[in-house]
Design a protein around this nucleic acid. Structure first.
Lengths: 290, 290
DNA sequence: TAATTCTTTTTGTCTAGGACAAAATACGTT
DNA sequence: AACGTATTTTGTCCTAGACAAAAAGAATTA
């Protein structure tokens, strides 16, 4: 085998980390990291280790930390920061532990079985609240701790999405009322959260129209109008800045007909108090303002 | 209302056309198109019309034409070139027409019914090949022609995803062989294509592990190893940087064990000719190299 | 305590035109 | 027709500065 370390060009790193070229270069200039080698042409080439670290950095940034804080850290400080963000709320949950174990051993079948069993036992509300939510949290922590590969996270997401979609399909009632329009605004990619909500609402007999992620506001308004819904529900992940969330909500309230209620939820709106009239907040997936 | 034309920054154009910034700039320098305006900061801003044309240009490049030929053309010559290459494949398809109509009138129920009926009649292969694929094409054309709202496209995507996921869930067989790993590389978001493929393969009795979109290559290799699959299948949409697809495939071939076959498909690889040993291409969703 | 306003700092995106290798084409030979 | 070589085409990467949008901090109001 070769003992040369694998090296990646800036284009590859851009794709694999989701960080733009220009940003990679300016980070190097400002914070001293990443510090790629150069090939014979004088072009940046990034060793694998730095790419990995960039992926970890990105994870932290997605959680709301700022580049200035994260990028100038050494390895040890970065680790501490990561573990510091681990939520200790790992309330013992047997099912979650089992699923995590199956995930570690790449046992696809077992994961599916465990999910099904858990759902059959708990019903939709319990399943989402007591299994899926803590499971996702456990996955996030595990990833930050380096015990989980990205592909394992992807795999689990896909399994969950398929499972939820399949159940929604079964639950779907025609022309039930009230009708809910579900979406996230541009910049927000968390499809899984939407699906969870969609499943919950469907289970409660509501008619759900899920538009998926990254729907521009004008489109949202048009859709609400044309589908003739009673409620528009949005989710905001923690990465969203609360100030812009507020203004977005206000804007949406102005665009929509008064008759239509607005529901907002997700980590991003947790600390939001005063809301415009006609806007409700659901704190957890369990407590919907139905 | 404002009568000002909508203007897009180079970053947005990059996203919407799949053409890299640097490429957009160098085209401007070399061929004189695109020729964006400048804002007060001196930055390029592209009028909507030029973005549309860039998308058309991309289609032509994807069909094998070269930038030097296409970019220096005037509007009329471009049109002639396009009509010369027009696929006459707009075979009348009643189901597709019906669905498009329901989409226009925002009739959610009817869409679902039509999909189900079509699937029951045709089976998975026929459904994907004769309904979904032409439907997506129709949606694309309709969108390009400005007759369809973004939200309508989103809505249809969600319906299709749910439907396919539900069917896959039913079809799923445990420990069937051979096993296929499914994913797209980073930068490629077209989840729906993956789902279609996943459904087809499942219907043919294969065991499918779908990792979803944007999986870094190293993760793909690890996953293939840990899940012990026989085949890795990737899809590339037309929006993918066509130049880089080949090098990606070659890279993947080097990373994977020889025993594992590689399948590639999607609009992006349509015009790819020479492929490395151990790499197969499936042209349409119907013609899988099983 | 929570929302609003103002100021300062941080951060990502954009610019220029040159350079160069990889891919595609054209040409010449067996 | 198949292959090797020369030429053209084409995409990606470079530098270092600029600047607005976003976020944080400070001060004020309800």
């Amino acid at each position: 085998m070769t003992d040369s370390i694998e090296l990646f060009t800036i284009g590859v790193v851009e794709r694999d980390t989701g960080i733009a070229r220009d940003t990679l270069r300016v980070w190097e200039r400002r914070y001293g990291f990443p510090r790629p080698q150069r090939n014979d042409r004088g072009e940046r080439v990034y060793p694998e280790q730095q790419v990995r670290r960039l992926q970890r950095v990105r994870r932290l940034l997605d959680q709301g930390l700022r580049p200035g804080k994260v990028l100038s850290l050494n390895e040890q400080a970065l680790c501490e920061l990561e573990t510091g963000l681990l939520n200790e709320s790992t309330a013992n949950n047997h099912t979650v532990d089992e699923i995590m174990q199956s995930l570690q051993s790449s046992d696809a079948e077992e994961i599916i079985n465990l999910l099904k069993r858990s759902y059959d036992k708990q019903g939709m509300q319990g399943f989402i609240h007591d299994t899926v939510t803590p499971l996702l949290k456990a996955v996030g922590d595990s990833w930050a701790g380096g015990q989980l590969q990205i592909y394992q996270e992807h795999f689990l997401s896909q399994q969950l999405m398929r499972f939820l979609n399949a159940e929604i399909e079964k639950l779907q009632k025609t022309s039930a009322k009230p009708a809910v329009l579900l979406a996230t605004l541009p910049g927000e990619d968390h499809t899984l959260g939407l699906l969870m909500l969609s499943a919950l609402l469907s289970a409660q007999g509501l008619s759900v129209i899920n538009l998926g992620s990254s729907v521009p506001m004008d489109q949202l308004a048009k859709a609400a109008d044309n589908f003739n819904v009673d409620i528009v529900a949005l989710t905001f992940s923690g990465a969203y800045q609360y100030k812009s969330i507020r203004s977005h909500i206000i804007e949406l309230r102005q665009v929509l007909i008064e008759d239509i209620d607005i529901w907002v939820g997700g980590e991003g709106v947790k600390n939001l108090r005063k809301l415009p009239v006609g806007v409700s907040k659901f704190k957890s997936m369990g407590s919907l303002p139905v």
